[in-house]
């Protein structure tokens, strides 16, 4: 049997990688992908919790995360398209600088 907290540790590792991606990457697409990673890690943590507590609640919350992630991706990508049309780039630093001007 696998100790459940190993799954939790895995989710923590994935979450931290996602955080580093959000902070360190400059491209909006990569930032969005990193956010997906973090959400996925959160879902993994819910499922592990469900295994520990022996109930369906964690699994249900994992299922709830899916539409949230889908909605977030839909809007995020639409915004990315708009930004790209306006600034011809997805570099967040460049966009931030052009907004100041």
């Amino acid at each position: 049997m696998i100790p459940a907290y190993h799954a939790l540790i895995l989710s923590g590792i994935l979450f931290c990688i996602g955080i580093v991606g959000v902070i360190a990457r400059r491209n909006l697409l990569f930032v969005l992908m990193s956010i997906e990673i973090m959400m996925n890690a959160a879902g993994l943590a819910f499922v592990a919790g469900s295994a520990i507590h022996g109930s369906y609640d964690g699994q249900i919350f994992f299922i709830f995360i899916l539409p949230v992630a889908a909605a977030e991706v839909a809007i995020g990508l639409a915004l990315a398209l708009l930004l790209y049309q306006k600034y011809k780039t997805l570099d967040l630093w460049v966009i931030a600088r052009s907004k100041e001007e």
């Binding site: 959000v22 902070i23 360190a24 930032v31 967040l92 931030a96």
Partner: peptide, 12 residues
């Protein structure tokens, strides 16, 4: 400084 990454890092 208006960069999302910096805000995220402060949050972290």
């Amino acid at each position: 400084n208006g960069r999302v990454g910096r805000y995220a890092m402060v949050m972290l």
